[in-house]
Simulated assay, not measured.
Amino acid sequence: MTKWEYVTVPLLVHNTKAILDNWGLDGWELVTVLPGPDGSNPVAYMKRPKND
């Protein structure tokens, strides 16, 4: 069974693509984007297989 690790990343609206591209290069897969706790800045939720 695959074990996963997760991360949440705050996104800057004017730089979203670059932020997601950088995390993707490190093997992170985007799961979803939701509004942040303050309701304005979105937060990306990502996962990748955990290395044991």
Results as ranks from 00 to 15, higher is better:
M1L: 05
M1P: 08
T2E: 11
T2Y: 09
T2V: 11
K3Q: 09
K3R: 15
E5H: 00
Y6W: 15
Y6T: 06
V7D: 02
T8M: 15
P10H: 01
L12S: 10
L12T: 00
L12G: 01
L12K: 14
V13Y: 03
V13A: 08
V13I: 13
H14M: 05
N15R: 03
N15E: 07
N15A: 04
N15C: 03
T16D: 01
T16V: 12
K17R: 14
K17M: 02
A18T: 04
I19T: 03
I19L: 06
D21Y: 12
N22Q: 10
N22V: 09
W23L: 08
W23E: 13
W23M: 11
G24M: 01
G24P: 04
G24I: 02
D26Y: 04
D26G: 01
D26C: 07
D26L: 10
G27L: 14
G27E: 03
G27K: 06
W28T: 01
W28V: 00
E29S: 06
E29V: 08
V31E: 15
T32W: 05
T32E: 14
L34G: 07
L34Y: 04
L34D: 11
P35K: 03
G36C: 05
P37N: 09
D38V: 12
P42Q: 06
P42I: 04
V43H: 14
A44N: 05
Y45T: 00
Y45F: 15
M46R: 08
M46T: 09
K47P: 11
R48G: 11
P49Q: 12
P49G: 02
P49T: 11
K50N: 00
K50M: 01
K50Q: 09
K50A: 12
N51C: 13
N51I: 11
D52Q: 05
